[in-house]
Design a protein around this nucleic acid. Structure first.
Lengths: 250, 250
DNA sequence: TCGGCTTTGTGAAATCGTGCACGAAGTGCC
DNA sequence: GGCACTTCGTGCACGATTTCACAAAGCCGA
């Protein structure tokens, strides 16, 4: 019989929206733990995370029942549970494909290693880049991708190539055995079922902001028109009633 | 009476989920236009964007009725309409706060300017960084933020500081008159109503992937157990039936 | 002009995510 | 031990989003 590592029976599936919020809670809770806070209420956590308290409770309820009524949640234990659920009880080395501007920045950005995702390798197709060192890691040729992935048992790959070669990069990653891909190239990648792909597109984020800016402009213009045309003068309402904050991802 | 610039009466509000997809369609359509494709069906666009065709039609319907039944959509016209709706008919200069690793990479990443978001300025609080040049832009001191924002009429700010100073950076941006913020720091920013905040957190993205990886591992272990315990042997089912692809943002 | 074919635009149903409201459970004071 | 108070866990209603299904519309060849 296989040794029973953790008694971690796959509990009910966690909704994607919740999964996207857990890392945020984790971040906040870690800070609180650091600051010596021992327990926190759903209200308190909600405040810090900028969400509704009921949502926090519902989210946490997917982990099981780890709160104490009348008291709140024990910070340390919550940190432990969330880390376990997210699979953060061990490191996940990542490999970066593309050592251009973005790839270098990602490799140089210490934040990954600290948070459990050390850069296990960075590769590029351009031989001129090979053997240069970025963020303490030597760039290797993309043909070595297989060897790197296998030797370090990597399952997460990061695509940081120009758009034209992104699909090729993804295909190579999949062939090497990677099953999760974080794509920074502004293209839609296709991958076989069983491989999770997430995309981060900076220009898309800015375009979404642009939409809201545009909309604000329209609104102001419309209001000015209405005011100028001598209708009922609005009595200093909120400058913008709707959306107050938005947190992305998901 | 105010001059009637565009006959752009604020049409019905576009759902946030749709707004997040429009930039992706735009990207694809621009490529198609480039390649000489004159018209495209919802089916074709859906295929390229990795979404459902009905969704594409509904999304586009929020722009008005720009398709021709039996034929499809005229690519050029669609590009024009989406750009207009997203407010991309003019540039939106941005200001970057924080000239560290990430700030430099963002400034150096040419993709912004090309897609309508030129870097109008980059500031840092550290005088040692001031006057260095990154991506063709001279770093200036954060005290000059006001002047930069006003002189270039900037409404979008990018926070690329360490987490500890991110809220301060955001506050300064708001005080300078910026009304949209893209936050790269791993903290939850608070901002007054009327200011749109979006967050991009690379570690969060990786943690979401980690969750899925973890889950896959659990599943495989469970299957092995089931198989080993001598039940009905499954006849080579899909290694992982569920999720095939996911595109991020929002 | 007509009939067959394609593809859009959109009601309606199904699904997913959010927030309220409240019973249940625990704490601490008297 | 009992009472007042706090905070969790969750059923339920509501709103947003997705998907289906199909009538309406346009194209084209006969």
């Amino acid at each position: 019989m296989a040794p029973h590592r953790t008694p971690h029976v796959t509990r009910r599936r966690i909704p994607e929206a919740t999964v996207a919020r857990l890392p945020v809670y984790l971040q906040i809770l870690s800070e609180q733990a650091e600051a010596g806070v021992a327990s926190i209420s759903s209200e308190g956590l909600a405040e810090l995370a900028g969400v509704n308290a009921a949502k926090v409770r519902k989210d946490l309820s997917y982990l099981g029942s780890y709160g104490t009524r009348g008291v709140g949640y024990e910070v340390d234990y919550l940190v432990y549970q969330i880390r376990r659920e997210l699979g953060l009880d061990h490191d996940w080395p990542v490999v970066i494909v593309g050592a251009g501007n973005l790839g270098q920045a990602l490799a140089g950005y210490g934040g990954f290693g600290e948070r459990g995702f050390p850069v296990g390798g960075i590769v590029d197709i351009d031989v001129a880049k090979v053997d240069t060192v970025v963020g303490g890691v030597r760039v290797r040729h993309i043909d070595e991708l297989d060897a790197i992935v296998r030797s370090k048992d990597i399952s997460i790959g990061i695509v940081a190539t120009p758009p034209s070669t992104a699909q090729d990069a993804a295909d190579r990653l999949v062939r090497s055995g990677v099953s999760s891909i974080l794509n920074f190239a502004p293209v839609v990648l296709s991958a076989p079922a069983g491989v999770t792909v997430r995309k981060v597109d900076l220009a898309v984020e800015l375009q979404i902001l642009s939409y809201h800016e545009q909309r604000r402009g329209d609104q102001r213009r419309t209001e000015q028109l209405r005011a100028a045309s001598g209708g009922v003068t609005p009595i200093a309402g909120n400058p913008s009633p709707a959306e107050s904050r938005r947190d992305a991802t998901a």
